[in-house]
């Protein structure tokens, strides 16, 4: 059993466990913290897949950015509502059945054909390669993305503007 396999199983356990915690915890604040853990686990998976840059982005943006925003939103809404927001679920059984059926279907679709087990050799420095590709081959999606970000920013500001 190589180190990669051990790492994969450990990371999988962390990831699945924290994800379950995210959707099952009653306390919304705790759920956000569990989400941060799950996102960090994902970053670990990225590292296993030789994508160091993406792991860094994942931690910076997700764990750093989104979690901060969500916490901020929770605080703001709780202050608006004036009470603690409890996190309850409904129709857990139905949701569980649907989810399990879904995951078994996806898994069986994945297992249906043997897929690649060997990693082909890639460039030494993947970060540099991503950096080379984005502004050349993917310049158009990149610019569109900038536009999208701007639109989202304006929309968020519009929604969150003070009441008249």
């Amino acid at each position: 059993m190589s180190g990669e396999v051990v790492a994969f199983w450990c990371l999988s356990a962390v990831l699945v466990g924290s994800a379950l915690a995210v959707v099952l915890t009653k306390n919304l604040f705790h759920a956000v913290l569990w989400l941060a853990l799950a996102l960090t686990g994902t970053a670990g998976v990225f590292l296993l897949l030789d994508a160091e840059f993406l792991a860094a982005v994942q931690i910076l943006l997700y764990a750093g950015g989104i979690v901060t925003i969500v916490v901020f939103a929770i605080v703001v809404t709780e202050r608006l509502v004036g009470e603690r927001i409890s996190q309850t679920s409904r129709r857990i059984a139905g949701g569980a059945v649907v989810s399990i059926v879904l995951v078994s279907l996806i898994a069986s679709a994945v297992m249906q054909r043997p897929l690649a087990d060997v990693r082909p050799p890639m460039a030494e420095d993947l970060t540099r390669e991503i950096g080379d590709t984005v502004p050349t081959r993917f310049v158009l999606p990149f610019e569109l993305l900038a536009l999208l970000m701007l639109a989202a920013l304006m929309g968020a500001i519009y929604f969150a503007r003070p009441e008249d």
């Binding site: 059926v101 996806i106 679709a109 249906q112």
Partner: peptide, 20 residues
């Protein structure tokens, strides 16, 4: 979203059937 799940399931079953 249940409807979305249903559609996804049908799609997956169809993929299985088509690739079988």
């Amino acid at each position: 979203v249940y409807g979305v799940a249903l559609g996804l399931m049908i799609l997956l079953l169809w993929v299985r059937w088509a690739l079988a």
